[in-house]
Simulated assay, not measured.
Amino acid sequence: MSGPRPPDSAGRAMVGISGWRYKPWRSVFYPKGLAQKNELAYVAERLDSVEINGSFYSLQTPANYQRWAAEVPDDFVFAVKGSRYLTHLLRLRNAATALPNFFASGLLALGPKLGPVLWQLPPNLAFDPESVRSFLAALPRTTASAVEFARGHDERLDGRAWLETDADRPIRHCVEVRHPSFDCDEFVELMREQDAGIVVADSAGHFPQLFEVTSDVVYVRLHGAEELYVSGYPEEALREWAARIDGWRTGATVPDRLPRDVYVYCDNDVKVRAPYDAMRLRELLSRAD
């Protein structure tokens, strides 16, 4: 990933889904008889990116990240979901050991296919400027600094830590908030100060929807047009999202007029809407090029 482009150059729109291993998708989105081990490759033939959800629930291994990277094309990108141990249990505090453990667990093994890191906060976590600022300030912002940061892992990662990078690249961090107290100017300014992105979350009215651009990437999560995680997006809604995304990637709707890379993930997976909505949105965006 790169920083903001000059005004005469548009950013990329990377469209994907949140996770890819869903039993109800088999014989519906995935063809009948497709081996589970081939599902990621099937997604990668049709979309640009995917969120790795497993990293939210537990520390993954370098072997997992290496395998996933090997199953997708060179231009495919993974967003990595930050550990819920950090966001939901520690609630962004006392992370001096847990953060290095997360970065030592193998995500750097994705190499150039590593995209943004998503930090999803719980609905019962209210905005506390001190804890949010301290957490964001501690995050490594390049792969080289992440390697050094990860060396602070504890004994649980001994013998299984990944402590190398093939090149020094930026690491972008984006935060999805779910408590209404984050819908305030102070949070927006804090995110700009820390050069972190606010996730634009469409959640059928359940969580705050913030459109402010606070970093050099824009991260969008589409959780469902009318019912959280369930309902699909009608054609008109997808066209509206395509227009917003095009405004961000061209810089037309950003105050500084600089283009952004935009990462968009459909998370309305319950009734197998996510992959189809993502493919249609990708098609609409490709027509705008």
Rank of each mutant, 00 (worst) to 15 (best):
P129N: 10
I52F: 07
R178K: 08
G205L: 08
M1Y: 05
T253R: 00
I245E: 07
K271I: 03
G54W: 03
R280I: 11
D195G: 08
G205A: 05
E71C: 11
N124Q: 13
S145E: 04
P100L: 07
D158C: 10
K271H: 09
T250M: 03
Q60G: 15
A144F: 11
G11Q: 01
A278T: 03
D267T: 14
Y265S: 11
I17Y: 11
E130D: 11
T61V: 07
P275K: 06
G16T: 03
E283K: 12
V230Y: 07
E71K: 15
A109I: 05
S9T: 15
K37A: 15
P129S: 10
A126S: 12
P180Q: 02
I245C: 05
S83A: 13
Q60T: 13
S49I: 01
H88N: 07
A274N: 05
Y22P: 00
D183H: 10
R141M: 08
G197D: 15
G247I: 01
T61P: 03
A109N: 05
D8E: 15
G54T: 07
E155L: 13
W20D: 03
P7T: 12
D267R: 08
R260E: 00
D158N: 13
D74E: 15
W20C: 00
R46P: 00
G33T: 13
G19I: 05
G152M: 12
F182E: 00
E51M: 05
Y233R: 08
P170Y: 08
V117A: 09
R67N: 15
S105L: 03
A161S: 05
L238A: 10
W68E: 10
N101R: 15
R221D: 12
S231D: 10
Q209Y: 05
Y265V: 08
G54Q: 07
C184A: 14
L238S: 09
E51R: 01
L157V: 06
P255C: 07
F78V: 11
S55L: 09
D75H: 15
H206Q: 11
A13K: 05
D269Q: 09
G205W: 04
R133W: 05
P275Q: 09
M14H: 14
P24T: 12
L110W: 06
A201Y: 02
Y65C: 12
M1L: 10
D267K: 11
A252C: 01
A95E: 06
R151P: 01
R260F: 01
L86E: 08
R93Q: 14
D154N: 15
P62Q: 07
D128Q: 02
L47M: 10
V264H: 09
A137S: 15
A278L: 04
S105M: 08
G111I: 08
L228T: 02
G224H: 13
E227W: 02
N38K: 15
W241V: 11
P7Q: 12
S215M: 06
R133D: 13
L285N: 04
V72H: 04
Q120C: 02
V262R: 00
N64H: 09
S286T: 08
